[in-house]
Nucleic acid binder design. Structure first.
Lengths: 183, 183
DNA sequence: CAGTCCATGTAAGTAGTTACATGATTGC
DNA sequence: GCAATCATGTAACTACTTACATGGACTG
């Protein structure tokens, strides 16, 4: 998966591993994240596979940078991946639900403490997403290229899902906290 | 993680790898799934680590079964894990959002086809969860042990989150389908 | 002069997936 | 006879995480 994400970003412009890490953190981070170690090793592998090329520039004063550029083959691969729709359910992994499922032996206080911390975490995330949405809406007004305007519709859509998810989580946490309090 | 799930189930009663696979599929499956290969290898490792013991019974007529039983050490480990609350955000991985994020170059038809299939998938999941909830509510009425009644509150809570998640997903899919249609 | 940002990498380990492999029983 | 269910495992691989490793520039 991380390959396609990197190709997706490099399809806009050449970037370094560091740039890609930041791009991931600031945009796709809420639905797919990666450590820099994985990004750097994957980029190297992708270069071997002919999906990207790299230019190493020794920085005078600044740090050295290795800039990656997508190849025709890389574009092709991204395009093929995007054209084959996802027709199966993807599996979700939710550690908190695992914990709650087996919480019969725990005290109510212990569970409530955990749920309350989680509520704070998800409240913070929702606030972040709202801020990101506002920033994006402002930027969208003055986008130069119509092609990027189209892209921004999809970026916004993923953010909206992020917000719906956090809202659903918060509602559920409140409901569950109430349930546990009344036990 | 899978270790704790297996311990969680074995904490109720001794079970075989096969039983555990089914238990996972029918209950925790919607928030954590595992292949049988991982379950069998993990159980073997857990036996080496002293968290479980196994009894092999050659079946006459029936297939052979290896039944695993949790040890005191296993119970202790489960208990410690449950007592240390989750205080960090867990990372979400949503392939569909990755795809949508990079869908600027795709045709509206291609995107709509994918979103529509996804809507069907999530509608089906929601229906499944509703059915499971009804079954669980009926079972909960005639549960023998009060301790299992307490457990069932938490099982129900995880199901409720599943339903909220699917509902949020469906609402978002409908919204996004409308957005793309109006492009 | 301590901490953060820029910038790149490797090594080792854990977790998870896919494929291979076997074989009996039950129901249609 | 064919498919599904019961039942257990191994091997190979891919993906992901954690830790180690370095070093200059800028900021307070």
């Amino acid at each position: 998966m991380i390959q396609y994400i990197l190709l997706g970003f490099l399809n806009y412009q050449p970037m370094t591993g560091y740039d890609l890490k930041r791009a991931l953190d600031h945009s796709t981070g809420h639905f797919w994240h990666a450590y820099h170690s994985q990004i750097y090793t994957t980029l190297r592998q992708m270069e071997k596979d002919g999906l990207v090329t790299s230019q190493f520039v020794m920085g005078e004063g600044q740090p050295d940078r290795r800039t990656y550029t997508i190849t025709e083959q890389g574009r092709e691969m991204l395009s093929v991946w995007l054209s084959r729709p996802l027709t199966e359910a993807v599996s979700v992994k939710e550690e908190l639900l695992v914990r709650l499922f087996f919480s019969g032996q725990r005290s109510n206080e212990s569970i409530l403490a955990e749920l309350t911390v989680q509520r704070e975490i998800h409240q913070q995330k929702l606030a972040e997403y709202r801020k990101m949405q506002q920033e994006m809406e402002e930027q969208a007004k003055c986008l130069p290229l119509p092609s990027l305007q189209r892209d921004s519709v999809f970026w916004m859509a993923t953010l909206k899902m992020g917000m719906r998810y956090e809202q659903a989580y918060l509602d559920w946490l409140s409901e569950t906290i109430q349930t546990v309090q009344s036990l």
